[in-house]
Simulated assay, not measured.
Amino acid sequence: MSESRPSSATRFVVGVSGSPGSLTAMSRAADEARRRGAELWPVLAWEPPGGDPAARRFPAAAVMVEEWDRLARERLLKALCDVFGSTDTGLPGHALVVRGAPGPALVRTAGREGDVLVVGAGGRGRLRRALWPSVSRYCLARAACPVLAVPPSPLQTALAAVRRRNALRLPLDMERLQREFESVPPGA
């Protein structure tokens, strides 16, 4: 029988943007990593406004690349603080800032054997889906590893409904809202 080498440690690579959906996904990825004794790799992908071709065309954009990278690092640190209370996740792994479109960057980062890619899913209306490509759909279609698409929390869904009613200046049913918020499980 041939001797097999141990595979690398399981990594939960999670896409982070700072959005409520990505924070929910990072929390779920941390829970799964903790449960399985795996590493947590939060990844924030960014690209210059207009993409890399625009940044190469304009000399002023080249100067701004360092600033955009700094802002991306700050956004990742803030997301870590929002979920964990500090920049320490309490798990092995590394937080990464990657330059590139989010979908391809996440698929490239989660390229090792044993990786699990975690992305936020849902919570997008028809207009947003038509105008902006879905990172979760890209990852589900192209990743070579398992992908865990985390739906928005029930609290996030209820909050979105309240915002829509406020934007349309419709009255709020406070008793119904109270029941909905009481039915949300702790930590959701």
Results as ranks from 00 to 15, higher is better:
Ser86Cys: 01
Ala105Cys: 09
Trp132Asp: 10
Phe84Trp: 11
Val98Ser: 12
Ala121Ile: 05
Gly125Ala: 05
Gly93Leu: 06
Ala110Arg: 08
Ala95Thr: 03
Gly123Pro: 11
Gly125His: 03
Gly123Met: 09
Gly90Met: 13
Leu131Ile: 12
Leu127Cys: 00
Pro104Tyr: 00
Pro133Val: 15
Leu96Pro: 13
Pro102Trp: 10
Gly103Gln: 02
Arg112Ser: 10
Val98Pro: 11
Asp88Gly: 04
Gly120His: 03
Pro104Cys: 02
Leu96Val: 08
Ala101Arg: 12
Pro92Lys: 14
Val119Trp: 05
Val118Gly: 01
Gly90Arg: 09
Gly90Val: 06
Ala95Asp: 10
Gly100Thr: 12
Asp88His: 03
Thr87Ala: 14
Thr89Phe: 07
Thr89Val: 08
Leu117Gln: 06
Pro92Cys: 08
Gly122Lys: 07
Ala130Lys: 07
Gly111Tyr: 05
Leu106Cys: 04
Thr87Phe: 00
Arg126Lys: 10
Gly93Ile: 11
Leu96His: 14
Arg129Tyr: 03
Val98Asp: 02
Ala130Asn: 08
Arg128Pro: 03
Val119Thr: 13
Arg126Val: 13
Val119Phe: 02
Pro92Gly: 00
Ala95Pro: 07
Thr87Arg: 13
Gly93Met: 13
Ala130Asp: 01
Ala95Ser: 14
Leu106Trp: 01
Gly120Ile: 13
Thr87Tyr: 01
Arg112Gln: 12
Val107Gly: 00
Pro102Arg: 12
Val97Asn: 12
Leu106Asn: 02
Gly90Ile: 05
Leu91Ile: 07
Ala110Phe: 03
Pro92Met: 09
Ala130Leu: 13
Arg99Ile: 08
Val119Ala: 06
Asp88Leu: 05
Leu96Thr: 08
Ala110Trp: 00
Arg124Met: 13
Arg128Lys: 09
Arg99His: 10
Trp132Arg: 04
Val119Asn: 05
Phe84Thr: 01
Ser86Gly: 07
Ala105Val: 10
Gly114Ile: 07
Ala95Gln: 10
Pro133Gly: 13
Val98Trp: 01
Glu113Arg: 15
Val116Ser: 08
Arg129Leu: 14
Leu127Gly: 02
Arg126Phe: 07
Arg124Ser: 15
Val107Phe: 01
Gly122Leu: 09
Gly85Val: 08
Gly103Val: 02
Gly90Phe: 13
Leu106Ile: 06
Val98Thr: 15
Asp88Gln: 11
Gly114Leu: 04
Val116Pro: 03
Gly103Asn: 02
Val116Ile: 14
Thr109Pro: 05
Gly120Glu: 14
Leu91Gly: 00
Ala105Arg: 01
His94Ile: 13
Pro133Asn: 08
Gly120Thr: 11
Phe84Leu: 06
Gly100Ser: 04
Ala130Ile: 01
Arg99Asn: 05
Val97Trp: 09
Glu113Gly: 14
Gly93Val: 13
Arg128Glu: 15
Pro104Met: 07
Arg124Trp: 07
Arg108Gly: 10
Leu127Met: 08
His94Trp: 12
Thr109Asp: 01
Phe84Arg: 06
Gly103Glu: 01
Gly123Glu: 06
Val98Leu: 05
Ser134Met: 11
Val107Pro: 00
